[in-house]
Design a protein around this nucleic acid. Structure first.
Length: 220
DNA sequence: AGCCAGGCTACCG
DNA sequence: CGGTAGCATGGC
């Protein structure tokens, strides 16, 4: 099947508009031209924790939570499991849904330790309570450098607005459209998703969505 | 003062 | 199967 080259063209447009984003932030720092993150097991764990905490939550609030966890030396799987639930909840309070997210973190951390440094399968992540497709794919992409395209609310909003995907498609169907129309490239998927988020924050955060979106005139 | 944020689960018809 | 209430806080 031939590729729809509009997907890669939009990527290039977004990169020109916003510049490299350098996800995933580690210790609140974006690494604009460094795609070799994480570099240590603890950085990998921090990415996974951040992926859970950022569910339906701005990363600003997540950053406050990560800071508290770091202060208490809890960005470490063994220490996190040893800590009291009260302490964990207190640390992550700013990221919202702290009761649910504490349970999610502990469930995930149990599983993380059983990995013994191997990469998890997507289905293994999805089987965990509290890990859905976006969280699993974010971990696999940004943590384990698996070339897998992350679909989030912003991606759906922008690309349905641009009439490039059907709003009724399910997660994996939308993901397949991106992956079928793009080279299977970790760095491309890494940047593209980050650029989508930045672009959505600028042009698709409040209704009516996309009014001043420069990509629209480019496509037309 | 609302509305929104880098979702997921449980439960309903 | 699709649709949606509930979860919770901080920023703007």
């Amino acid at each position: 099947m031939r590729k729809d080259n509009r997907f890669q063209a939009i990527y290039k447009q977004l990169l020109t508009l916003h510049g490299p984003q350098g996800w995933w932030p580690i210790r609140a720092t974006y690494h604009k031209h460094d795609y070799d993150i994480p570099q240590t097991p603890e950085e990998l764990f921090e990415i996974c924790v951040g992926a859970i905490l950022t569910q339906n939550t701005s990363f600003k609030n997540v950053d406050l939570a990560l800071h508290n966890l770091r202060e208490h030396n809890l960005l470490n799987p063994q220490n996190l499991l040893k800590a009291s639930e009260i302490l964990v909840k207190t640390c992550i309070k700013a990221s919202g849904y702290f009761n649910q997210k504490t349970k999610k973190l502990l469930t995930f951390t149990d599983f993380f330790l059983t990995l013994n440094h191997r990469k998890p399968l997507r289905n293994e992540l999805l089987s965990l309570w509290g890990i859905g497709p976006e969280t699993a794919d974010s971990m696999l992409l940004y943590g384990w450098h698996e070339p897998i395209f992350v679909i989030d609310a912003y991606t759906k909003r922008i690309f349905t607005h641009l009439n490039l995907i059907d709003a009724t498609f399910k997660y994996e169907d939308m993901q397949a459209i991106f992956e079928d129309n793009l080279p299977k490239d970790y760095i491309l998927y890494n940047e593209f998703h980050a650029l989508i988020v930045e672009h959505a924050k600028q042009f698709y955060s409040k209704k009516p969505y996309g009014i001043k979106c420069p990509i629209k005139s480019y496509l037309a």
